[in-house]
Design a protein around this nucleic acid. Structure first.
Lengths: 338, 338
DNA sequence: CTGAAAGCGCTTACAG
DNA sequence: CTGAAAGCGCTTACAG
């Protein structure tokens, strides 16, 4: 069907090797030879078959990125950053989303398209350490995000505990004492929200305040609707926090929705802080205070770790990289200080 | 490096063909033979090399989706829908974003990774019809979105003119007369905003109102910041619309930000309607009235058209598909009617 | 129902 | 500086 190297070689009256040399800009080809071959290439409209090249070279130039949900702006923004970072290394990115479902995460982690991807960046939600044993070790894996694993993989994540503490400290500094946490999860220690919840607890204790577990709300998911429902549930059971620290911005935005509907003012009645610094938060009616992870650093580090392993560097120890973050104070906690 | 079919065949003491038959669940294999081969597969940890299969079959099972910006929730949500729709056809999706830059769109449209993708779904911003001539016709292309092309490709887009007219009609029905349009573009007829702007004009004329071009604001981009700037520019030059129809929800959200900052109430002072129905709009302090395109229908139709061409069906005429849309009325135009 | 062989389109030692 | 040949790991007629 397509035009092959052989066709070009025939047309140019040279060997396949010579055409290959030209296509790959091999330096030692005489200019007139190059011109002759190029002419044949143009006339025939030849385009190299990358699949064949991949088979031959044993690599494809494709890395996969699997995130829980592309509809979550944090992951969409991160995916964009990964695509850009990968492009700088001449890699193409295959984006998949797992809906946070463990079986999809397992499938992906085990190299969902065997031999079509050179490496994988995975941001898990429900994946467990044991799911990671017995995976095909020929495909390097870089883990992203808050979950901790006892498995020998590079892991890129900001310091979630420290970041959460900063957010809570900020709320405390404004005089808030009844600070709710929205977006916890039931289940064991390694739940995604664990670190941020721990930061909430630690900072309260450090301030001499007993963490009130009645102010911790479990949500079903991580979306705006979950945040709205969580806030409503909290208010409905008679709790009246003076501040809310949400697992992420979406939950915070949902919570603000409920607060507004209930006639509570932000931040006068209830201050709200989130986590992720998605663009939505900057344009809310009341712009949202949040922890801003350095997304482009996360993307860059992830791609760098992957390409380092891909280019056969000495198989270094799995590394724990901690990209930066910062607290961004906006009206949802600070009043009209913008 | 990897374990190949041949290794498995050797171990099981059968021919390569037999192993291939087992791997591909070819029906006519005796159970005991299947068991024997499966045992060898398990022992060796064999995993088929998809690249080789792809080379052999001439297809890869990968389709590419190129959108302007993954950071725009509309495209992120659409990408998620395309990934899901493609999975139902056993296709994997390679997501790329073009930043709306024409040269990236050209690159992508010409099959950026030749022979690694079977087909392409492209949502262009600045691509021109002439950029589409001379592309490699072996890779089917489906176009998405508002731009019109005189090129023989399947094109999936809601009826943008009709949808825009519905939005404007809704605003008119509420008594608004000075309705601004935010998010126009300079340049020729085929600019992306053209159809929606045309809908705005047509509906005003139909209502016996002379479209006031002073109420049309050109923006640099399609983000929240552009909407905020556009609204500020409009107010700064002394125009005071009683309603705003924005090219998309992001621009509408940005505009609402500016209106709130200027102390104007929504919808009492200025009603606002957007386009896209992204989730953000549902959770704004003032939930946003918008045109809701049927994203999953768009995704499904796009993937269906592509797979139809991929599975060698009679090369039908390029089709123009019109998925549905509906007007979703929320507080930003309707007051407290939720 | 299974085997031996060709070939998808490349790249890469190996010669010359 | 260029050519002839092998081989990456599959699938698929073609035999039997």
């Amino acid at each position: 069907m397509g035009v092959s190297l052989k066709d070009v070689a025939q047309r140019a009256g040279v060997s396949v090797k010579t055409v290959s040399n030209v296509v790959n800009s091999y330096p030692h080809v005489t200019p007139q030879m190059r011109a002759r071959v190029q002419k044949a290439i143009d006339e025939l409209g030849y385009r190299p078959n990358l699949t064949a090249r991949h088979l031959r070279k044993g690599r494809t130039g494709i890395i996969a990125l699997a995130v829980p949900e592309l509809g979550n702006p944090y992951f969409a923004e991160l995916a964009g950053a990964v695509i850009d970072a990968a492009a700088r290394h001449d890699y193409t990115v295959l984006v998949d989303h797992t809906a946070g479902r463990r079986e999809r995460e397992i499938h992906v982690s085990q190299g969902f398209s065997s031999h079509v991807i050179d490496g994988l960046i995975l941001s898990p939600i429900h994946l467990e350490t044991e799911d990671l044993t017995g995976r095909d070790e020929t495909v390097p894996l870089v883990l992203l995000g808050e979950r901790e694993y006892e498995a020998p993989y590079d892991h890129i994540a900001i310091d979630n505990v420290a970041a959460a503490r900063e957010a809570v400290r900020h709320l405390l500094s404004l005089g808030h004492r009844r600070i709710a946490f929205l977006g916890s999860r039931t289940g064991h220690e390694r739940q995604p929200a664990h670190m941020r919840l721990r930061g909430w607890r630690e900072e309260l204790v450090a301030a001499g305040i007993e963490p009130d577990e009645a102010l911790v709300v479990v949500t079903d998911g991580y979306g705006r609707a979950d945040g709205a429902a969580a806030m409503a549930a909290l208010l409905d059971r008679g709790e009246r926090p003076d501040a809310v620290f949400a697992y992420n911005d979406l939950i915070a935005i949902g919570a603000m929705r409920t607060l507004t509907e209930r006639g509570l003012r932000i931040p006068e009645d209830v201050a709200v802080a989130g986590f992720d610094d998605i663009e939505d938060g900057r344009f809310c009616a009341v712009p949202l205070t949040t922890i801003s992870p350095d997304k482009s650093a996360i993307a860059r580090l992830a791609v760098d770790r992957l390409t380092a392993r891909l280019t056969g560097q000495p198989p270094a120890e799995p590394r724990r990289e901690r990209p930066g973050h910062r607290l961004v104070i906006r009206d949802s906690t600070a009043g009209r200080s913008r």
